[in-house]
């Protein structure tokens, strides 16, 4: 009862409230649907992170202890875990220095000292000193000693106050190009690693495209042609390719396509020659306009391909997905679908 019926009841009740709460004019229900339910979810998910983190730690430590395959990587994983924990929960690593009462004639000198100590722009610091009597130096110091050292250099020019950033705020505080230890880990270790993984996508797209664009059947040929048109149409070189040139290529390609179907080669050649002649006459009459005929101009063609057939196909899939989501959600809300509870 506890394991199945109660969770099912919760799902049904909350699901129905969320579904029909959208229509009620009751403020309490509206608040629950729009704000409270999502906040409850955020709180539960935040506490649930402990489960995952402990599981991760346990697995990595067991791997090290049992010296399983590639256990050395697990040492890095555990060290990284504890280092981030240390920087987030134990070591604040964020101190600010504020300066007040600096005489106007000393602004330049003080700006020079601050600029040297913080690797910042002198002009910007001077402007900041002139604008504020109580000026916060644009740097977050990771150690109190570092903040005190600069404070001591500036103590003869005005009153310096060294303040630790509040716990919590220290995770995201940033002044100038500096932040806390946690901020440093995020910006100089985590972000470059994420960017590296993201950058791999470029190479994976290339390799996936190479495999997808091989001419195996009609659909693959169509995909390849559309891909070429879209790629060329989106780069500057596509605008430089004359639509007349593309038109001639198209006529020759059509000739190649119909040649196997027509037994009499004279008819095939006549069709191709006629096509070339018509296009030539058209070109002469229009003065070989560089953007016409639009049907053969890559930028116009790619825009049409993107806006019409691609959008139509994407919307069709989205409608299907939307209906699938509606159907699945409805089955879950009415209790018909219980597989996610482990029930079959």
């Amino acid at each position: 009862m506890m394991k199945r019926q109660i969770p099912l009841l919760i799902v049904i009740v909350v699901g129905l409230i969320t579904l029909f709460g959208h229509f009620f004019s009751n403020q309490g229900i509206q608040n629950f649907v729009d704000n409270d339910s999502t906040q409850w979810y955020d709180i539960i998910a935040s506490f649930a992170i402990f489960l995952g983190a402990l599981n991760l730690l346990k697995l990595q430590l067991m791997k090290i202890y049992k010296k399983q395959n590639n256990w050395q990587y697990s040492i890095l994983a555990v060290l990284g875990f504890f280092f981030a924990l240390f920087a987030g929960f134990l070591y604040r690593g964020a101190y600010t220095v504020s300066l007040s009462g600096v005489a106007v004639e000393n602004h330049q000198e003080v700006a020079g000292i601050i600029a040297t100590g913080t690797h910042n722009n002198v002009a910007l610091i001077t402007a900041g000193l002139e604008g504020n009597d109580d000026y916060t130096i644009p740097m977050v110091f990771m150690t109190e000693g570092g903040a005190e050292a600069l404070g001591e250099d500036l103590s003869s020019y005005g009153a310096t106050v060294i303040s630790p950033v509040q716990w919590g705020a220290h995770l995201t505080v940033k002044l100038g190009n500096s932040g806390s230890l946690f901020w440093w880990i995020f910006n100089y270790i985590f972000t470059p690693l994420s960017a590296t993984m993201f950058a791999l996508l470029a190479f994976f797209v290339a390799s996936a495209s190479y495999r997808a664009f091989r001419i195996r059947n009609f659909e693959a040929t169509l995909l390849l042609s559309a891909g070429i048109i879209l790629m060329l149409g989106r780069v500057p070189v596509g605008q430089m390719i004359s639509p007349w040139f593309v038109g001639f290529i198209f006529i020759l390609a059509m000739g190649a396509v119909i040649a196997p179907m027509v037994k009499n080669k004279f008819i095939t050649v006549s069709i191709v020659v006629a096509g070339i002649a018509i296009l030539t006459v058209w070109g002469v009459l229009t003065g070989w306009d560089s953007t016409r005929p639009a049907i053969f101009y890559f930028p116009v063609l790619q825009e049409w391909i993107f806006n019409v057939p691609t959008t139509a196909g994407a919307r069709a899939i989205m409608i299907g997905i939307g209906l699938g989501i509606v159907g699945t959600s409805f089955r879950i809300i009415i209790g018909l679908e219980r597989s996610f509870l482990g029930e079959k």
Binding site: R211, I317, I321, G327, T328, R331, E337
Partner: peptide, 20 residues
């Protein structure tokens, strides 16, 4: 492009009914 089989759109959501 990259997988052998792909459940597109609502095929993915019908899996429960299909398999059970």
């Amino acid at each position: 492009t990259a997988c052998d089989y792909t459940l597109i759109g609502e095929e993915f959501f019908t899996a429960s009914a299909y398999l059970s």
